[in-house]
């Protein structure tokens, strides 16, 4: 037996590969991320933008120069200047302060709704993919039903029916994203259901729930993370859209959608900055999350790189 315990020769590429990743850990993970970022400056840019949005959401409200709710009619409708970077609105509120403060609320709505749909849609999806049969049919038909509506109109309907609160925006946004998550999780779980390691897990005496959560879920997690980032941008847009048409968050709470809606009336009279700055910020946020999703996909799944 002693002789058999020598490792058989491996090809050079395999040896170098094993050596290189044997010291894997946070260091290797960071190197990997740096490699992807260096290769793709757009992703790097979106990472930086993401960090800026995150900081704005966390500490923005304590840094802004003016109270976002304090009106000052004496200085209403001022164009951008050194004093008011983004100008002031019809009530003299500082738009820069309002844009920064709004980040937290928009982020909270987006993150909460995405987390909710990730849990619900992800669970329903992996159960459907793993068990098939009736579970699959029920989850599939629920997804189809949701997909049958124009999604924004469906979200409007839900918020209008449930009431005009932040919680309901979160719920509506989660519901319209449900099919995306359920379908992604279903197809990935379905592929892995027949994987050798799932059979092996069964032979080791693992029960079905254990197989789902310890063997299948961790393996589809990277793909789900990508989906989360991609939907996040969409969730922000959706929340702003609902507020824009007067559902959800109500004035005077600073929120990008409301600010665009309020500013829209002033564009014709030349006061473009009221709608412009929140609009651009919203666009950047959506952009940032979408690009981030593409970058994350490159990191977790190099094969699908475009």
């Amino acid at each position: 037996m002693t002789t058999l315990s020598q490792p058989e020769p491996v090809s050079p590429s395999v040896t170098t590969l094993t050596k290189a990743v044997s010291a894997r850990g946070i260091g290797a993970q960071l190197r990997h991320i740096r490699y992807v970022l260096a290769d793709n400056p757009v992703t790097a840019g979106s990472f930086i933008l993401f960090v800026i949005f995150l900081l704005a959401a966390l500490i923005g409200p304590s840094l802004v120069p003016y109270d976002p709710l304090a009106s000052n009619t004496a200085s209403a409708l001022r164009p951008p200047s050194a004093q008011h970077w983004f100008g002031t609105d019809q009530l003299g509120r500082d738009i820069f302060s309002r844009v920064v403060v709004a980040t937290r609320l928009d982020m909270i709505i987006a993150i909460a709704s995405v987390l909710l749909v990730f849990v619900l849609g992800g669970l329903a999806g992996i159960a459907a993919g793993f068990y098939g049969g009736w579970t699959d049919r029920i989850v599939g038909r629920i997804s189809d039903t949701i997909m049958a509506f124009p999604l924004f109109v469906l979200a409007m309907g839900i918020v209008a029916a449930l009431g005009n609160t932040v919680t309901n925006i979160v719920i509506a946004t989660a519901i319209i994203n449900f099919p995306l998550y359920a379908r992604l999780a279903r197809s990935e779980a379905n592929i892995r259901r027949e994987a050798g390691y799932v059979h092996a897990a069964r032979l080791s005496g693992n029960s079905d729930p254990r197989i789902l959560f310890r063997f299948i879920l961790p393996n589809i997690m990277p793909l789900m993370m990508v989906q989360i980032s991609l939907t996040m941008g969409y969730a922000i847009l959706n929340a702003a859209g609902l507020s824009f048409i007067g559902l959800g968050v109500r004035p005077p709470t600073p929120e990008w959608g409301i600010m665009v809606a309020e500013g829209a009336a002033f564009i014709v009279s030349g006061e473009w900055w009221i709608a412009f700055f929140p609009g651009v910020t919203l666009m950047l946020a959506v952009f940032c999350f979408n690009l981030l999703g593409d970058g994350l996909r490159d990191i977790v799944d190099p094969l699908r790189r475009t």
């Binding site: 994987a195 050798g196 390691y197 059979h199 092996a200 005496g205 029960s207 063997f215």
Partner: peptide
């Protein structure tokens, strides 16, 4: 899967890569 007999019959899989949880 949870029967005590389970441990007495085991399998070595065809594809060693596919049979290990990544």
């Amino acid at each position: 899967a949870v029967h005590p007999m389970r441990r007495r019959i085991q399998l070595v899989f065809q594809d060693p890569t596919d049979s290990l949880n990544p």
